[in-house]
Simulated scan of single mutants.
Amino acid sequence: MKRHFLAAMVPLAIASAIVIPAYSQSAAALERPVAAPAAKRFANEGNGLKTAVFAGGCFWGVEAVFSHVKGVKSAVSGYHGGNAATATYEKTNTGVTGHAEAVRVVYDPKIVRYDQLLQIFFSVTADPTLRNRQGPDRGSQYRAALVPLSAEQRKVAAAYLKQMQASGKWSSPIVTEIEAYKKFYKAETYHQDFMVKNPRHGYIVRWDKPKVAALKAMYPSHYRSTFIRN
């Protein structure tokens, strides 16, 4: 279900409910970066800041990657879907609330386009062939999903998923889906900017720092060394 939290960092009721997953070689293999293809269909979103939501397993890593992308103004961890009454870490971790751990990204399309964010997301953050799981985490709350907030984003996302399927980059079928935007609920304060606040945390070191390193290696023109805090 979830991971190496230090009990002192979270309320006791939450800490006592956490189950540490068994890390396996097969789970580790699923975290290898993939050179996702550059999108053939560019996003044309005009001027001004735009917002999109990405679900890709544990929101710590998704937030960390996007927080290092040039043009991203903020990356907020939270829960998408479900309802307000169950939009908490403890309840969503049951896997039955309908929420997905997700990140709300605000970005400047003049610096980084939505289609480029998609390429980065599927290259270093989420495995699009996994259903209701990512890395060591299992459950519908860890599903990978795209949540566009405009008609243009939806068209770009749909075209890109089709392009990914035809690219041959993945040996298994693409199962990531586009979800209609419902409501995004900001996660608890201790989840925000988690990697920069807890650089030695076991889960961060094992699963999320490699994603940021892959971003730097694969997309140096998009990489920003500073972490944009919320």
Rank of each mutant, 00 (worst) to 15 (best):
M1D: 09
M1N: 08
K2D: 12
A8C: 08
L12H: 07
L12Q: 09
A13S: 12
A13N: 13
S16E: 14
I18W: 05
I18P: 07
P21E: 12
P21H: 05
P21G: 04
A22M: 12
S26V: 09
A27V: 05
A27G: 04
A29R: 13
L30Y: 07
L30T: 15
R32P: 02
A35I: 01
P37H: 06
P37C: 03
A39I: 15
A43M: 12
A43S: 15
E45N: 03
N47G: 03
G48E: 13
G48A: 06
C58F: 03
G61T: 04
G61W: 07
G61I: 03
V62M: 08
A64Q: 06
F66S: 03
V69D: 01
G71K: 05
V72N: 01
K73M: 08
A75L: 05
G78W: 00
Y79R: 02
H80G: 05
H80D: 01
H80V: 04
G82Q: 08
T86F: 07
A87K: 02
Y89E: 06
V96P: 03
T97K: 00
T97S: 07
G98W: 11
V105E: 03
V105S: 00
V105I: 15
K110A: 14
K110M: 10
Y114R: 00
Y114I: 00
L117W: 04
Q119S: 03
Q119Y: 01
F121L: 02
F121R: 04
F122Y: 14
V124E: 05
T125A: 11
D127W: 01
P128I: 06
P128G: 01
T129V: 03
N132E: 11
Q134K: 08
G135P: 08
P136A: 10
P136C: 08
S140Y: 00
Y142M: 02
A144P: 00
A144K: 06
V147G: 04
P148E: 10
S150F: 05
A151N: 07
E152Y: 03
E152P: 05
R154S: 10
R154Y: 11
K155M: 07
A158T: 15
A159D: 15
A159T: 13
L161A: 12
L161R: 11
Q165A: 15
Q165S: 14
A166G: 14
A166T: 10
A166H: 06
G168W: 11
W170T: 12
S172Y: 14
E177Q: 15
E177K: 15
E179V: 12
E179M: 13
Y181R: 07
F184I: 05
F184K: 01
A187R: 01
E188C: 09
H191N: 02
F194W: 12
F194V: 06
M195V: 15
V196I: 14
V196N: 08
R200H: 13
G202L: 13
Y203F: 10
I204G: 04
V205N: 12
D208I: 06
D208F: 14
K209L: 15
K211Q: 13
K211N: 09
K216V: 00
P220I: 13
S221I: 04
S225N: 04
N230R: 05
N230T: 07
